[in-house]
Design a binder for these strands. Structure first.
Lengths: 243, 243
DNA sequence: ACAATAGTGTCTTTAAGACAATATAAC
DNA sequence: GTTATATTGTCTTAAAGACACTATTGT
């Protein structure tokens, strides 16, 4: 090992964002249209290189969240997903991308004022099924992000990050149904969610009504870990014909 | 944004390994003694920079596993833990380290023939309690690795990675007890583990005996996801005085 | 009244946890 | 025999899941 003559190789550092939200009861991910090579014209995750050598990676994630999606990272759930550094993943050279998972509440705004404004919400099903042909290894990153979200729904309060400051229990249920891609019994869900101490808290006598009986409003509780967990049904148990 | 004149900053890419194993029914992590600055004389995680700009990150993890711990990565559980890239974490410059979690079966060998042979197994308690003063942000990385292992024990078959090819149920129980740092009822654990389909499979009539009744031997089943999970007891429920 | 959604009660099945009892080895 | 560990059984409680029923709105 010639330690004196050898110097370690450097790589470019990028940040990529998997931003998930609910739109029309469906799980969506934010994608941007690439305007330059490589993969010009393809859809890709929002993201980019570090601004300068002193920028923190998490700071860069917040900056991209603001620049590319007009979202305030301080008010969103944001966690690191992992590093993607396979040598051939970017034709421009050795790029190590650090992916982040962000959860945005489903607000009315479509995407808001992006500079290039080439950002659209796309159903994750379109991505997972491979219909969409994302740039780089971004499909794999989306898959990992969705799986992370699915897993964390079980034993953390992550589902609330998809909701506004206040929400109804059926809105919360729609989050679980959309992310897991299954249907849940509203009555059992209602009881279960209320039985998890510190998950949600009732907020005043205010109610939200559209068609049927008005629903109580809740806000986030103080617990981030759920006991007992909201268990995802075992896919092996899908035997009988469901309604 | 002056895209033509600006070029993105580069960073050095390192790989760090959190290698966990069981020794004397206690969870240990492999640490090496640093011989050069920075942090010369401190304990650190095994790892190092990428060998060349074409080396894959996972390949580098395997290489370091071999070089620094004389362990065959192909026979170990190895998964990415995450990227650590805070600007000030390495005084030599901007270094992004990609951490991996490895689980080694508790074999007789102490550490085996490392070149520098400065590698020792250290109880994770010594690290988590802060008694040990690791280099860089390696204490945080160990904390994340241990927490990952603790969580995955619940709903994956990761515990088996701590055991040899065949093992007894009480050996498996010791893994859960050491990693979680709690005691479990052997009788309930026995039944529960056998009730998880595909977790473990009996292997022949061979038995292992030391003091009491010889125990049956098992090997890994074909399932990696556990249904139902091996739930970690809720720490809030620790009320009564335990035996 | 009716349709639609919210919320409660009840029952059955399954898993968790405490712990008695039995089995098979070493000594 | 005694001691030590492995394995089985039984009982109680908690949670999961199915599903009837009541409540409160808009139309």
């Amino acid at each position: 090992m010639p330690e004196e003559t050898w110097s370690p190789p450097a790589a470019l550092i990028a940040v990529d964002l998997v931003i998930l939200t609910l739109r029309a009861s469906q799980l969506h991910v934010l994608l941007v249209q690439r305007g330059v090579e490589p993969y010009s014209g393809h859809q890709a995750l929002p993201g980019g290189f570090l601004k300068d050598v002193e920028e923190d990676v998490l700071t860069a994630a917040h900056r991209e969240l603001q620049e590319e999606a007009d979202l305030d990272g301080a008010r969103l759930h944001l966690e690191q997903l992992g590093a993607y550094g396979t040598p051939g993943r970017d034709p421009r050279g050795r790029v190590v991308s650090i992916a982040y998972l962000a959860i945005a509440p489903s607000l009315p705004e479509p995407v808001a004022g992006t500079d290039a404004s080439s950002a659209w919400w796309q159903p994750v099903d379109e991505v997972l099924s491979g219909k969409l042909q994302l740039a780089f290894d971004h499909q794999e990153i989306v898959e990992d992000g969705v799986e992370r979200a699915r897993a964390k729904l079980e034993h953390t309060a992550l589902a609330i990050a998809f909701c506004g400051d206040t929400f109804t229990i059926s809105e919360l249920q729609q989050v679980y149904e959309a992310v897991w891609g299954i249907r849940l019994d509203p009555r059992n869900f209602y009881r279960k969610v209320q039985g998890v101490s510190g998950f949600i808290e009732p907020v005043g006598p205010d109610r939200k009504a559209t068609r049927g009986r008005p629903a109580r409003l809740f806000r986030a509780g103080d617990r981030t870990a759920l006991h007992p967990p909201i268990a995802r049904p075992d896919p092996m148990m899908s035997n009988e014909g469901n309604n």
